[in-house]
């Protein structure tokens, strides 16, 4: 059983220890807060993008530069407008076969292309970096005056195809959101999101345009 004296003695000593302990707790709390903060920042900025995207190799490592040197009409030699004004997009096997009925070089990629696709008559399952969701209506014809590079970057000068990074949730390429997971980019071709379309529309036409301009 404690006496009143005991109590008097104990209270200040308890206060003193409590202050110390309180400071320690605060220190630990800050430490834990920082750990949580840094950990989640690392997860969000570093781990998350690695988990979100799966890496896929293109069926054939296509060399744009070699082809650009060989054709006369630039990008449109292969990525052309059809007679009805629609855009043909990625060339079909029939188009490629016009030149590559048999291998013209000993390049392993060309040999593979001829053996695995041209000879059996199988379309190449290209993975399309710029493919937009099905709810987006984009007309190349309406943007004919622009340079391909503005949206597609320097792909025409590339010598090999980079891996296709597929978003595991949406199935679309990382190139739509952009390489930077934070959505920051320096160039017009760094991302192809709706905001990018709207920003350009606003700049060029003075208006972002109505919803149904792209979402039919």
């Amino acid at each position: 059983m404690s006496t009143p004296d005991d109590n008097e003695k104990k209270i200040p000593s308890e206060n003193h220890d409590g202050e110390k302990e309180g400071n320690a707790t605060l220190g630990f709390a800050i430490l834990f807060f920082m750990a949580g903060l840094i950990g989640s920042l690392l997860v969000g900025w570093v781990v998350f993008p690695k988990l979100l995207y799966s890496q896929k190799e293109q069926p054939i490592d296509f060399n744009h530069q070699v082809h650009m040197d060989a054709v006369s009409d630039g990008c449109q030699s292969c990525h052309f407008y059809r007679e009805d004004g629609t855009f043909a997009g990625v060339p079909t096997l029939a188009q490629c076969s016009e030149c590559h009925e048999s291998a013209q070089t000993e390049d392993p990629n060309e040999v593979k292309f001829v053996d695995e696709y041209v000879t059996p008559g199988k379309e190449v399952p290209w993975l399309i970096y710029a493919r937009q969701p099905d709810c987006v209506f984009f007309s190349h014809a309406a943007h004919k005056e622009m340079e391909c590079k503005t949206c597609h970057g320097d792909i025409g000068e590339s010598t090999s195809l980079k891996p296709y990074e597929e978003n595991r949730i949406t199935g679309y390429s990382r190139d739509i959101w952009g390489d930077n997971i934070g959505g920051f980019g320096k160039n017009t071709w760094d991302s192809m999101k709706m905001d990018d379309c709207a920003a350009c529309h606003e700049r060029e036409t003075g208006s972002k345009g109505p919803c149904f301009q792209c979402h039919k």
Binding site: F33, G39, S40
Partner: peptide
Amino acid sequence: GGVVGTTLSPL
């Protein structure tokens, strides 16, 4: 800390 960090991350 996690909540603040997550909010400040693109996740």
